[in-house]
Amino acid sequence: MKAKKICNRLNKAIEEKKNIYGFIHSVHKRAFNIMTSEFKLISVMNCEHSMAPCSLMLDREENFVSLGIEQGMRVIIFEELIDIPQVSLAIDLMEAQPWDPTPKFVVDKAKRSEIAERIAIVEKCIYEFGRFEGIAPLVLRVNIRKSGEGFVHSQANYNKYCKFIEKKFLRLIDHLQEDRLKEAAKIAKKIMGFGPGLTPSVDDVLVGIMLSLIYFLHYIGEDRLEAKLLSEEVLKAVKNETTAVSFKMLTFASKGETNEDIRQLLIDIFSNNRKEKLIKSLKKVLTFGASSGTDIICGIYLGCSIMINKYEVKSDVCSS
C-alpha cells in the first residue's frame, strides 16, 4: 500500500527516530489508528478522508476492516515503511507528499462588517444540515448572539445530554465571555469526555471553541495569548478524562491545528471567499461522523460569537 500524503511533522519524527514500535489502537472501515510506544496516536486514512495532523493518507479507497487489521496487532515503523506483519501489509511512505498541519491564517481577510454575516450563515447551516444527537441543541439555545430571526428547528430539541450538562456548560460560556480563562478551563476539564460518540460531544464543541478563538484572534490581529492560556489549562489534566482519539484532537486544536476540511472552513469564514464556498465547506463538515461535525461547528460558532460580542463591545465601531 502506498501513502499519498503524510503530516510533515510525523514524517520528520519517523526520519529522526528510525525505529518506532506500536500496536493497532482501533480500526474502522476508512481509517485505523496506531498507538506508538511513546503514546502518540498516528492515524492512517484512506483517500476518502480529510487529511489531518499526525496522520497519513493512502492513495486508494481501502477498507481496513476487511483487510483483517485488528486491535492489538504489532506495528513497526522503519525508515520509509510501516509494517503490520500479522496481516502481511506494509505501507510505503517514500512517495508521500508532506502535508503542513499548521493553521492557515487568512491574508485576504473578510471585512469586519461581513464577519457577523458569515457567522450567521454558519448558524443557518447548522440548523439546516446539522445533526443534533449531541449537545448541539444546547449550544444553539445559548443566547449569545441575537441572530435577528428566531430560528426554531424541530430537530434542535433538548435531549438528555443537553439537560444534564446545561448548568455547567452555561457557566463555561459565562467565564469565556468575561475573560475568566482559568475558571473556564477548570469547567472545561470537568465536562470533558461527556456525550455520545467516539469523540464525546463536549470535546468536539471544545475543539471548535479553541480553533475559533485562535483564528479569530489572529484575524483581528490580537495577541493569541488568551487562546493559548485556555488551551494550556484545558490540556493540563485532560489526558485521562477522555478517549485517546479525542485527546489527540483536543491537543492539536489547542495549537489551532485540525483536519483539512475544518481548516478550509475556518479559512472560508474569515476570508473574502464567496459565500457559496463557505456553505459548501459547512455542508462537508456538518455531515462528518454522527454528530461530531455538527458539534465542532457549533463550537466554532460559539467561539466566534463570543469573540464578536467582546470586540463589538470593546470598540464602538461595528463596521468599517
Binding site: M1, F78, E79, L81, S88, A90, D92, M94
Partner: peptide, 12 residues
C-alpha cells in the same frame, strides 16, 4: 510481502 516491492522487501 510489501506488495512485491523489492525496495520494501529489502527494508523489511
Amino acid at each position: 510481502c510489501a506488495g512485491g516491492n523489492k525496495r520494501m522487501i529489502e527494508l523489511l
